[in-house]
Write a protein that binds this DNA or RNA. Structure first.
Lengths: 271, 271
DNA sequence: ACCTGAACACCGTTCAAGT
DNA sequence: ACCTGAACACCGTTCAAGT
C-alpha cells in the first residue's frame, strides 16, 4: 500500500493552480507567460474585489475539501484568492483562527438548510431528528473539513463538538425547554445528542476517507495476507466489516437515542 | 482570551530540552557549554544506544503529550533522542508513518493493562466493560495524542477508530462469537461499540483540552458578555453545562449500549 | 486603504559524505 | 552500520515599504 504514497509536499498542487474565481475549468488555452499575476477569469482584471474575511473563510472551506488538511497553507490559499499570503493577515489573525472560523462557518451554514428548524414546530423528536440529519448532511458534504470540528480545542465547555456554534446550542436548549424539558433534562439531552453525533459522523466520514479497496485490491502483497492469517475472525468477517451500513446505522442509533432522551425527560421532570 | 496567545513556533521549547533518556529530572547542574551534544545522563556517554523504531515511537508519544500535536517535529524529536532529525529516517519512513505507529502503539499498549482481558472469562458484558474502561484509561492518559486516533485516515474499513489495532479487533470479534454471538451480531456490536467509544472519549478528552476558566475568568471582556446576552438559555444553563459529568455519563451510556447489544444479540441469533 | 518584498525562524525529506 | 552536513522546497508570520 505504501509504495504508491507521495507526501503531499512534493506534489506541487497542479502548479498552474486556479487564480481567480471558478471558471468552470474548461480546456485552458496555453498561456504565453504563465506566471503572470492575472489570468482572464470572467470579471475584468481591473475589478479587483478587495478581499474580506468571509471570502477568505469560505474559500478556505472549499480549498480544504479539494486538498485536505495539510494541503491548506496560507500561501496556497492566498494564491487562490489572487493575492500574496501576507494580505490574509489583514483580515485574519493567523492560521489557527482561520481554521476556527472555518469550523464555525461549517455548523452555522446549517441555517441555510430549510430541513433544519431553529425552533420546534412539530414536537421535540421531530426537532432533534431534523437537526441530527442536518449535521449529518453537513458532515457528508465536507468529508475533509468535518474532522476539524472535533480536533480543534473547544473555546468553552458549553460548546461541545460537533455543535460548535453558540447559535445552535441556544436553539437546542431553548427548543427543548420550550417543549417541556426541565433544565437538567435539556442539558442531559444536549450531552448525549452531541456525543452520539460526534461518534457516528466521525466514523462515517473517516470511512469515506480511505476506503479505496474494499476487497481484492489487486494484490496487497504478502503483508496483508499474513496479517489476516493471524487474525482469523477478522478475516472471516472481512466482507461484513467492509460493508457500509452507515445510513441505517445512523437512523437506528438516532431512534434509540430519542427513546433514551424521552426516558430522561420524564426522570428529570421538575414539578 | 486571545491577547495571551503566542503561536507555538516562537516559544522555543525550553531549548535546554532533554537529551538522553529520562533521568528522573532532578536538579540539573549548570552545564559549562550547554550546546555540547552529550549530557551526562546516567549511562556513560560513550554507550550510545543505537536507536530503534520502538524507542522513536514511544518517545514520540511522550513528547506529543508534553508539547501537543504541532509541537512535534522530526527535528525536535531527533534532538530529544540525542540525534539529528535525519537519523530518524533510517527507522521510520516519514512523519505520517510515525504518527500512525504512535496511534497503533497507543491502542496496543492496552495489552499491558491487567484489567483488560483479551478473551472473555466472565461473560461478554464483563468483557466489553473491561475493554471500554481500558480504552477510556488510555484516552485520559493521552489527552493530546488520543484525538489522532480519529483524525488519521484508517487503513482498512475493519479498523474503526478508536480500536485501530488488528489485535484488538480480533479479540473483540472472536470474544463475542465465542460467547454465542452470531457473526452478524458481533459485527453490529463492533460498530456500535466503536462509535460509542469515539463519541464519548473524544468529547471527554476535548473538554480536558481547553477547560481553563469554567466561570468567572477574571473578566472575559465585553465580547463574551455580549455573546451570552444573545443566547439567554446558554447563559442561564452555563453552570450546568460547564459541570463535568463525564465519568457517570460514560457509565450510563455504556450500560445502555450493553442493553442494546444484548437485544441485537437475540435479534440476530442464528439457528 | 490595501497589498507586497524581503526577511526570519522554522518545517519534512534527500543524498552524498563522514566515522 | 550508523549518523551527519548541506541543501531543497516548502511553511507561518512580521514589518517596512510600495501604490
Amino acid at each position: 500500500m505504501s509504495p504508491a504514497e507521495h507526501p503531499d509536499h512534493d506534489r506541487p498542487v497542479t502548479d498552474a493552480a486556479a487564480v481567480g474565481p471558478a471558471t468552470g475549468d474548461g480546456p485552458e488555452p496555453p498561456l504565453p507567460d504563465a506566471d503572470a499575476a492575472i489570468v482572464a477569469g470572467g470579471a475584468p482584471p481591473s475589478a479587483r474585489v478587495p478581499l474580506d474575511r468571509d471570502r477568505i473563510v469560505s474559500e478556505a472551506l472549499v480549498f480544504l475539501e479539494e486538498v485536505g488538511p495539510g494541503g491548506l497553507s496560507m500561501r496556497r490559499l492566498g494564491k487562490r484568492l489572487g493575492v500574496e499570503a501576507m494580505s490574509l493577515y489583514r483580515y485574519v489573525p493567523g492560521k489557527e483562527d482561520l481554521l476556527d472560523a472555518v469550523v464555525e462557518s461549517l455548523i452555522s451554514g446549517m441555517y441555510a438548510d430549510p430541513e433544519v428548524l431553529s425552533t420546534p414546530d412539530n414536537g421535540w423528536q421531530d426537532f432533534l431528528q431534523r437537526m441530527a440529519h442536518g449535521v449529518r448532511r453537513v458532515a457528508l458534504a465536507h468529508i475533509q473539513a468535518f474532522p476539524l470540528v472535533a480536533s480543534r480545542p473547544p473555546e468553552a465547555p458549553w460548546l461541545r463538538p460537533p455543535l460548535r456554534s453558540l447559535d445552535w446550542v441556544e436553539s437546542f436548549l431553548a427548543g427543548l425547554t420550550s417543549e417541556g424539558f426541565s433544565d437538567a433534562a435539556a442539558v442531559a439531552a444536549y450531552r448525549s445528542f452531541t456525543s452520539f453525533l460526534l461518534g457516528n459522523l466521525l466514523l462515517e466520514v473517516a470511512s469515506h476517507g480511505a476506503d479505496i479497496g474494499p476487497l481484492d485490491v489487486v494484490d496487497d502483497g504478502e503483508e496483508d495476507n499474513e496479517a489476516l492469517r493471524q487474525h482469523p475472525t477478522v478475516a472471516r468477517l472481512r466482507a461484513d466489516l467492509a460493508q457500509d451500513h452507515s445510513a441505517t446505522e445512523f437512523e437506528e442509533a438516532l431512534e434509540q437515542l430519542l427513546e433514551r432522551i424521552a426516558a430522561t425527560k420524564v426522570e428529570l421532570a421538575d414539578g
